[in-house]
Amino acid sequence: MHSHLPFEDPPALPHLPHEVVVETLEWALRDRSQEGEAARVLVGSALNDDDREFVEHWCVQVGTRAAPGSPLLGLAGLCLGHTARRFGHLSDEALTLAESLAARAEADPSDVDGRALDGFDDARSFLHLW
């Protein structure tokens, strides 16, 4: 059984400028007190930004660089699932990360939360990998 954290879609606004996204995510990767804003920005990008490569790159950056136990890890996995759904494609690196985050979530939900499982399920479904 997956443990789900509350999730709200951000308002459907035009995506943020890439410079703002990069600055916000980099800041949160250095300072965990900024994870809430980073989560909003990452989800907003995954749902609204039309540049798949940019979105995927930052999901991978967050998913590989966030500290163990950070809620951003599970969220990065979930956002990779959103990216797969929206664009019908993930790079091999992104798909491997989504699978790795899901495995970590299954092994230890205090390391990576269950949203990573949902994201990997979405990626497999929307990329027809079942």
Rank of each mutant, 00 (worst) to 15 (best):
H2Q: 05
H2E: 12
S3N: 13
S3G: 02
H4P: 00
L5I: 04
L5W: 08
P6I: 01
P6E: 11
P6D: 04
F7R: 14
A12I: 05
L13I: 02
L13W: 04
P14E: 11
P14H: 05
H15E: 10
L16N: 06
P17T: 02
P17H: 11
H18A: 09
H18F: 03
H18T: 03
E19V: 10
E23S: 15
L25S: 08
E26Y: 04
W27G: 02
A28S: 13
A28G: 07
A28F: 05
L29H: 08
L29G: 04
L29Q: 12
R30F: 05
R32V: 14
S33V: 14
Q34Y: 13
E35H: 04
G36C: 02
G36H: 13
E37N: 12
E37Q: 15
A38L: 05
A38N: 12
R40S: 09
R40I: 09
V41E: 10
V41Y: 05
V43C: 06
G44W: 00
G44C: 01
G44L: 02
G44I: 01
D49H: 15
D50I: 01
D51L: 01
R52Y: 00
V55I: 08
H57C: 00
H57E: 15
C59G: 08
C59W: 01
C59Y: 10
C59D: 05
V60L: 15
V62D: 03
V62H: 02
G63H: 04
G63Y: 10
R65T: 11
A66C: 05
P68R: 06
P68A: 11
G69I: 02
S70G: 09
P71H: 15
L72D: 06
L73M: 10
G77K: 05
G77Q: 06
G77W: 04
L78Q: 12
L80A: 06
L80K: 09
T83M: 01
A84T: 07
A84L: 05
R85D: 13
R86T: 02
R86S: 09
F87D: 08
G88D: 02
G88L: 03
L90D: 02
L90V: 11
D92W: 00
D92L: 09
D92Y: 00
D92G: 08
E93Q: 14
E93G: 01
E93P: 01
T96N: 12
T96Y: 00
T96V: 09
L97I: 04
E99G: 14
L101Y: 07
A102D: 07
A102C: 13
A102N: 06
A102G: 04
A103Q: 15
A105T: 11
A105P: 07
A105F: 08
E106K: 09
E106A: 08
A107R: 14
D108S: 13
D108V: 01
D108A: 12
S110Y: 05
G114W: 02
R115W: 14
A116T: 12
A116W: 12
A116V: 11
L117E: 14
G119C: 09
G119K: 07
D121V: 12
D121M: 06
A123Y: 08
R124C: 15
S125E: 13
L127Q: 04
L127V: 09
H128M: 07
H128R: 15
L129P: 10
